[in-house]
Computed example of a mutant assay.
Amino acid sequence: MRVYRSFLAALMLAVAAACASAPEPAIPFSDRLAAAEAAPNPYQTDAALTALLADPSLKQDERAEALYRRGSLRRLAADNRRGAVADLEAMLALAPDHPRAGQAEIELDLARSDLEALEPRLGYMLTLSQWFDVSWTLGDREAPALRYQKSGISPNEAQTQRLKDAGFICGADGAGGPVQGAGDPRDWLEGLTWCNPLSEPVEAEAETGDVEG
């Protein structure tokens, strides 16, 4: 009986140790993808898909799917045409026979057309508001935000929403000062501040005579 009890105790310890060391079941890729795409706004979705793509354990078809989803997002809602071209090119190079390859080729052509139209505009004489829109749509983030913050000019309502969604504009407790700039108060800027102080000087890249943002 004593031997049996010793054997039973040893068996229970072995089972407990196995249970303690067993890895948790992996979350299916489809669930991880759905969670990323459930982020509150396109810029956070972009960040979530970027985090997903950083996982080296993704299978080839999973990585291709995530690249397609991020590239398609960046082509429109997430305002990053350069990133869209890079993602869709990478997806097609990785998995040219992927079920979404045909759609990816269509979207890649559209994103390239956007680049061809937008890139030359950076060489034009633009107001700050115009330059912001072009740069932001191409995929720049820090420079357009810093330009507005430094200028003392208020962003318009649509630009303010983009800056909020991308994490540059906060509520009343931001450390970078009020977003409201020169001119008449804008209702959409009431109580808003820049989340962080200016981090670096910004070289002149646009005309800033657009005092109405």
Rank of each mutant, 00 (worst) to 15 (best):
M1E: 14
R2W: 13
V3H: 14
Y4A: 14
A18R: 11
C19P: 10
S21T: 15
A22W: 15
E24L: 15
P25I: 01
P25L: 05
I27Y: 10
I27C: 12
P28F: 08
P28H: 05
P28E: 09
R32A: 07
A34K: 12
A34Y: 09
A34V: 07
A35L: 06
P40M: 10
L49P: 00
A51F: 00
L52T: 01
A54D: 07
A54K: 02
D55Q: 08
P56E: 11
P56Y: 09
P56M: 10
D61W: 13
A66F: 00
A66E: 01
A66T: 04
R70F: 03
L76G: 15
A77T: 05
N80C: 02
R81F: 07
R82C: 00
R82A: 04
G83W: 02
A84R: 03
V85F: 10
L88C: 06
A93W: 11
P96A: 13
D97Q: 15
P99E: 11
Q103S: 11
E105M: 14
E105Q: 15
I106M: 15
E107C: 09
L108I: 04
L110H: 15
A111Q: 00
S113D: 12
A117W: 13
L122N: 01
L122V: 02
G123N: 05
Q130R: 07
W131K: 06
W131Y: 10
W131A: 04
D133S: 12
T137V: 07
G139T: 02
G139P: 00
D140F: 06
R141S: 08
P144V: 00
Y148S: 04
Y148M: 02
Q149S: 01
S151N: 05
S151Y: 06
S154G: 00
N156S: 09
A158Y: 04
R162T: 04
R162N: 05
L163K: 01
D165S: 04
A166S: 03
I169K: 00
G171H: 07
D173T: 14
P178H: 00
V179E: 06
Q180L: 10
G181S: 02
A182H: 12
L189S: 02
E190Q: 15
L192S: 08
T193C: 12
W194T: 04
C195N: 08
N196E: 09
E205W: 14
E207W: 11
D210H: 06
V211A: 10
G213R: 00
